[in-house]
């Protein structure tokens, strides 16, 4: 799955690869939202509770109606690890996987970027950033939250 044979055909550098998610009508909104750089979570239309990963029925009130609502993109690191073995072609050797708890209360698994492993702690305030990959895939990633007023 190398993109090298295509790299001569465009001046733009080839986008990195990632394993692509599969999608169903229950989950596609999340990935479509990422393409628009919007972090969406699923909200029950009846009781307003949020849930992630997305699924068809609210476990509290059993409603089937839901809406995709945009999250603030801010959260904190709830847990994190640095997988070292085996190594994969899709990841730099020091990649960090985090479980981020959003301000809205739901958690999601992501990568931490713009940070070295030694600076990662549980509770670290983080914010979303959207990274583009080959095949039109856009993934929400998280980086340490910048202080108010700091330039991006």
């Amino acid at each position: 799955m190398s993109g090298s044979e295509w790299s001569d055909m465009s001046e733009a550098p080839a986008l990195p690869e990632r394993l692509a998610p599969s999608m169903t009508p229950d989950t596609q909104f999340f990935w479509d939202g990422a393409k628009e750089h919007r972090l969406l979570t699923q909200q029950c239309s009846a009781c307003n509770r949020l849930r992630h990963p997305p699924r068809p029925m609210c476990p509290v009130c059993n409603a089937l109606d839901w809406e995709a609502v945009e999250a603030s993109g801010r959260g904190t690191v709830f847990s994190f690890v640095m997988p070292r073995h085996p190594q994969y072609p899709w990841f730099e050797p020091n990649y960090i996987v985090a479980l981020v708890e959003l301000e809205e209360g739901v958690r999601l698994v992501t990568n931490l970027v713009d940070v070295t492993p030694a600076d990662v702690t549980i509770g670290l305030p983080v914010e979303v950033r959207f990274d583009e990959f080959a095949g039109g895939l856009v993934l929400p990633m998280f980086r340490p939250r910048r202080a108010y007023g700091e330039s991006t």
């Binding site: 394993l19 998610p21 599969s22 997988p83 899709w90 996987v97 698994v109 992501t110 895939l137």
Partner: peptide, 16 residues
Amino acid sequence: AMPLWLSWYAPYGLLT
């Protein structure tokens, strides 16, 4: 074929 449950983890390298 990526299993649906793994779709939340595999893109981020949580694979084992």
